[in-house]
Design a protein around this nucleic acid. Structure first.
Lengths: 202, 202
DNA sequence: GGTTGACTAGACCGACTGGTCTACTATACT
DNA sequence: AGTATAGTAGACCAGTCGGTCTAGTCAACC
């Protein structure tokens, strides 16, 4: 019916894998095409430019992410603080699985892209920023719930949520640099100790 | 006397600036040469390859770093926990200054390179890993001292030191993605709240 | 004063880049 | 049946990449 959609999807998922496993600059349009078995003409039929492809890849990944293990980790049926552990666990197993298959820890696609492109492509930077905003919102909800449930002393939940996201990204960065997912398992759980207090307004 | 040393230095510092401000892949040998006003022949006289240049840049930066504001931040005359605040402050002012001049937050050269190259260049990855090890050792000493001085309850100082480094990198990553150094100032101080407890051995 | 070797100089190399172009096919509507 | 359109196909483009090569300069040493 829609072989076009198929082609587009094939480009998208190939690009996603390659960008994640290597980097944006290191993967060329030609390579994506040859692996996805799509001629160049078709590529530029679906995506006006490599940058547009990157935007689509980010959207695609963010979508999967939000509906996949992140949705599970932030499951409202779990006690709020356990969701944080679940999140760390998920990150660990994902990175470990990837390393077992590919031999290398790919890290976080968003973090990778953010550091690579954000000084020279404001459009992509803004998109990545939006993804991080959304991710931090999940932490934010969780923390609010934890405070409301009385399992966490009141604190600046918004800032702490951002701190937690930063910590997660930092841990993955360190783990990737060591090419060792165990770093995530060891350092990860400390995410729960991060606190930014409410500004004193007395 | 030694115009050669001058040339080498000029290549090195130009490359450092460009790599830091953009990325490894995005900066070509030709551009480095033309900005440093060095012909290509001279470049390859001093550096066998672009990769070797990157190694030298990392060494150079790590050296400056260790003897520069990091040495100040981890000054043994400061109370241990204050050193952490000093470190965050230094990171903030550095990024802010860079942004005021260039318009963009460059982030941390080591973190940038780590995420960009560590999946495809094990030599550079190992070097970056060593730099992070050294940085985390400074945190480690500081925490040990703090525990000894009784200003910090006993904890797993080694793991916590790594967690703090990860957090610092993560905060800089987030700030760079927002192109806003204020993120460092707001989230940074929470570094002191990170704790990884000693493994219970009862 | 001749020779050596560090260094400068930049033309040049094949490979590859993102992107364009034209030619062609297949399907869908009129 | 005829035409428009979506998509396939890949040759081709100018430009750039990291790296090599040859030619030549210059100072130090014999």
């Amino acid at each position: 019916m829609e072989p076009s959609l198929d082609t587009r999807t094939r480009i998208l998922s190939t690009a996603r894998e390659l960008f994640h496993g290597r980097s944006y600059a290191d993967v060329g349009v030609k390579e994506i095409c040859s692996i996805a078995k799509v001629p160049k003409g078709s590529f530029y039929h679906f995506f006006p430019s490599k940058q547009d492809l990157a935007m689509a890849v980010i959207d695609d990944m963010a979508e999967d992410w939000a509906h996949g293990f992140v949705a599970e980790a932030f499951d409202r049926d779990l006690p709020p603080l356990e969701r944080l552990d679940y999140m760390i666990d998920a990150a660990y197993y994902w990175q470990k699985a990837a390393k077992d298959i590919e031999g290398r820890m790919p890290g976080c696609l968003f973090g990778n892209l953010a550091l690579e492109v954000s000084t020279r492509d404001d459009v992509l930077r803004a998109k990545l920023h939006a993804v991080f905003q959304k991710a931090s919102a999940r932490f934010h909800e969780t923390l609010d719930e934890a405070v409301e449930a009385g399992v966490l002393a009141p604190l600046n939940t918004e800032a702490t949520a951002q701190a937690m996201l930063a910590y997660l990204e930092g841990v993955i960065l360190l783990a990737k640099t060591r090419n060792d997912p165990e770093v995530v398992r060891i350092l990860g759980p400390a995410i729960k100790t991060l606190r930014i207090e409410l500004a004193a307004e007395n």
